[in-house]
Write a protein that binds this DNA or RNA. Structure first.
Lengths: 333, 333
DNA sequence: AAGTGATATGTAAGCACTTACATTTTTAAT
DNA sequence: ATTAAAAATGTAAGTGCTTACATATCACTT
């Protein structure tokens, strides 16, 4: 069943059928109804490939995500797909993992699918080494590329993110002022946002005149690794009374560590997570966490994309403010 | 840059270029190399829409998922996308939510995208009312439809699932034999697998001669609702010493409830989750949970799909065995 | 009733590929 | 060197849609 069949059955030309398909105003109401009812009766579905050929696009967006099984990224994917679909776009998902080559391949794949734009989810994309960003910049020359939780100065990328630097600076300062004067920071990966978090932490402690030495540590995503790491740090004689992490999983590892060592939370040690994922309420005690407004960022990203498609003007960078969600692992008033 | 440009630059016909594109053996090695290098130099990417038109397909699979922000379903989506991509297929994701109409619309959307198959993730798809399954069966007439964690007797759907009935029957029986003689079951939704879990529970308790009355309860997915529900059940005088749930989130709600009431886990009350998600280790005490082999099911689903595409013969239903992962909310030996 | 502009419809040429069939070239056997 | 079969390549007709341009129809005006 194609446009020719429909045109015959409706007694019109294929151009008219096509116009109906594309909501053209240049069809009389009578004809439109006729054509639509023929389509309905024959449960006709236009062929996307043919339309894509003719139109040069078929309203699909590529979502490049490091790991959609990560609870935070999974939420991002969910919000994005939902909002895109509401705007008439569908989503091709591609999970890259954390290897550069795999990311590049996935990007190539999405570009070859002629997606109208590409959204990068997971701040792990913008890395320290500039050459690791090239494939993103190149993609940006072909289609609009949106970064969630990332930013690249002076690039043609569109960025929606949260002010993680400020957020971490703020909690760290508050903890310091409250007597938790010996904090450490655990992070997962030095992505753009990871870097911001770390810098926020460092700024706060340096303002208090603390030595940053041995206060910042990279951890694997596995909870047991986090526990092991903290155990060995502790057993080597190192002491600390606050742990600020770059995501909630790490913070839960920290909680497990503290409980196992008999440290009291939050009196003896404060713990702050990041992302304010559902996990924050699953653990015990429930986790104080920085909410970085993921849903808002995703909605904004999709809105921006639509404006770009409409050739409206658009900011290259939009930054939201995080919010500290206080629970039981800290004793802020 | 299209196939004509390439053919000119390589000094061959478009048919030859197309053959190179399609890995046809009917091209000499010399010509193939020549064409490939011209493509490379001009960084040519074949147009998916044109290829899709000519070939009638472009190796894309639709993934219909109730809610990809659900930690269990997010994992399924992750495994599926990964395995599909390894086999040269890309994935269009569509999150339906739990409303029938929305599910139907998403299915239509995916079919209109001419996906080569559709995978339904989230057992919520096969419901009690037969008419709610019609849209799935109709889709099954057009393309292969695979069900993850679902089954529909006598249909043309391909199903990969885990024997949840047996799994729940087994733990429930073990708990009963261990003296936890007053169990209740909480479930999220009466999907196919939800039904299996419930039936497994009921069979176990009826074999022990217990009254099933008031032992099985539907809960919302929200943790606070679960806690509230159990609170009011408890406050109304109802007592129980084992809670078997249909997912880990519910079980964590149960843990929170038990701790708040001062019930001792696992001596006073045993709690068993389902899915063995990461969550099971985040809570306190860590949760005993039924592992229903999601990764294996997903891999099997993709393999099955590839066999279908190759016209190899394939089982309509494949069932795996679950495994009980013992942690701290039960005291099995 | 003829003429005008607006509106509706049709024709045909893209869009970038695939592939059956026809033709040419190569290889190997005589 | 001749010939047949096999291999490589080319030609041209799809694939199902969009849309510029041409043409037909309609509603008014005079």
């Amino acid at each position: 069943m194609n446009i020719y069949d429909i045109s015959k059955k409706a007694g019109v030309s294929i151009a008219t059928v096509s116009r109906v398909l594309n909501d053209s105003p240049r069809v009389s109401e009578k004809t439109r109804d006729k054509v639509l009812s023929v389509m309905e009766q024959n449960s006709y579905t236009p062929n996307v490939y043919a339309r894509g050929l003719g139109l040069g696009s078929m309203n699909t967006i590529g979502i490049l995500c490091a790991d959609s099984s990560d609870i935070y990224l999974a939420n991002a994917v969910y919000y994005l797909e939902r909002d895109l679909r509401q705007h008439g776009y569908s989503s091709i998902l591609c999970c890259t993992g954390y290897e550069l080559e795999s990311k590049q391949n996935c990007m190539k794949l999405l570009l070859s699918k002629r997606t109208d734009a590409i959204i990068l989810v997971g701040s792990t994309f913008i890395e320290k080494r500039a050459e690791h960003n090239n494939y993103i910049l190149e993609a940006g020359m072909e289609v609009p590329v949106m970064l969630i939780n990332g930013y690249l100065e002076g690039s043609n990328l569109y960025c929606s993110l949260c002010d993680e630097h400020q957020a971490v600076y703020d909690v760290t300062s508050r903890l310091l002022n409250q007597g938790f004067d010996n904090p450490i920071h655990l992070y997962r990966a030095l992505s753009y946002s990871g870097l911001q978090k770390k810098e926020g932490f460092l700024q706060a402690i340096s303002e208090k005149g603390l030595n940053p030495q041995d206060r910042v540590h990279e951890c694997s995503g596995d909870m047991d690794d986090v526990i092991d790491f903290l155990d060995s740090l502790y057993d080597s004689g190192k002491r600390f009374n606050a742990i600020i992490t770059s995501n909630d999983e790490l913070a839960i590892g920290a909680i497990k560590f503290a409980r196992a060592k008999g440290l009291r939370i939050p009196e003896g040690i404060s713990i702050v997570g990041h992302n304010n994922s559902k996990l924050a309420r699953y653990c015990e005690p429930e986790l104080t966490s920085i909410d970085n407004k993921l849903e808002m960022i995703c909605i904004h990203t999709v809105t921006t994309l639509m404006r770009i498609f409409d050739n409206k003007n658009v900011a290259n960078k939009t930054m939201f403010s995080a919010e500290l969600i206080k629970r039981q692992t800290t004793s802020f008033n």
